[in-house]
């Protein structure tokens, strides 16, 4: 996903779907306000934002559940992509068995009859739910339901996967399993859009980052670019830096001092050797030196605030 409109043939071939100035209102509430973004082929797009930011509304519009009040959804030249959608709420027809439900999804996805069983088996295997194929959905745990939600998305290999809170409510092991599945899907070239509150999940699996707030896109970038900006060096010493604070602040404007910590940002990072020497000469013991990059949590906090 990038910040341009896909106007050339080459760009059109690269994207799955493009949103141009999409707005959505529910009575007086503006859920989305002129949102434009392009979902590129093979990318994993992470949608972040606080509650009510418009993430689920955006996914539902892409899934065709909601109609935008303004703006356009443009598929690429190959027509409307096939879509697999995992809603946030884990609601299923409880009276069915796991394999029956997935066979039904396969029937709706134009999978040839003789391939239905294999397709269901493959999707269950990918999400680690093969052992529960004959279980009634009503008897499935929350974790199993999350996996079932993911399994139904995989049936028929849709061109675009929309996952709303894919690991919500799972334990750590379950979250890791889901992340592995998403990573393997990305490796297989799938285009995925994930809405999540879990920053580590977005950091681990997403290649593109979109932060929504109050219905607007406040930030969008590739994950690599987002995390590459604002590197800094963090130093921690054994006692308060108050006595030498003014000296270091005078040395460079990008040096920050607080308590026992010192932060060297931007060009000040090149001064780390002289700074270390000065600290040692001043009688400080260096406890910790770390070259840090910005975290997603920092980006998120900055954007949302």
């Amino acid at each position: 996903m990038v910040n341009y409109h896909a106007d050339t043939d080459r760009e059109k071939a690269l994207f799955v779907i493009e949103l141009r100035n999409i707005s959505k209102r529910f009575y007086t509430l503006t859920a989305l306000d002129s949102v434009s973004l392009t979902i590129a082929r093979g990318e994993v797009v992470g949608l972040l934002g606080p509650n009510g930011a418009g993430k689920t509304t955006l996914l539902k519009i892409v899934a065709g559940m909601l109609q935008p009040d303004d703006g356009q959804l443009l598929p690429n030249g190959r027509g409307w992509p096939t879509i697999g959608f995992k809603p946030e709420r884990l609601l299923f027809p409880n009276e069915m068995r796991v394999h029956q439900y997935l066979e039904m999804i396969a029937g709706l996805s134009n999978i040839p009859r003789h391939q239905v069983r294999q397709s269901v088996r493959d999707s269950l295997e990918k999400v680690g739910l093969l052992y529960a194929a004959n279980k009634k959905i009503s008897a499935c745990s929350k974790g199993m339901r999350q996996r079932l939600g993911l399994a139904q998305v995989l049936i028929g290999e849709p061109a675009l996967l929309l996952l709303d809170e894919p690991s919500n409510g799972l334990d750590l092991e379950g979250q890791n399993d889901i992340l592995q599945v998403i990573q393997s899907l990305h490796a297989a070239g799938k285009t995925i859009v994930i809405s999540s509150h879990h920053l580590h999940e977005i950091t681990q699996v997403c290649t593109q980052l979109v932060i929504l707030n109050q219905g607007q896109v406040h930030y969008q970038s590739s994950m690599a670019e987002a995390l590459a900006v604002r590197p800094h060096v963090l130093l921690r010493v054994d006692k308060d830096l108050g006595p030498v604070r003014e000296m270091f602040l005078a040395l460079h404007p990008d040096i920050g001092v607080e308590g026992t910590q010192m932060m060297l940002k931007n060009e000040a990072m090149a001064l780390r050797r002289p700074v270390l020497a000065l600290l040692i000469n001043a009688g400080y013991d260096i406890l910790h030196v770390e070259q840090k990059r910005v975290t997603l949590a920092e980006i998120y906090a900055r954007v949302v605030q």
Binding site: A63, G64, I83, P87, R89, P93, M104, I105, L108, S109
Partner: peptide, 15 residues
Amino acid sequence: NEAANYPLVVRLPSR
């Protein structure tokens, strides 16, 4: 009209 059917409707070429 139940929310459990979202994944089904998404699969159809036409509502």
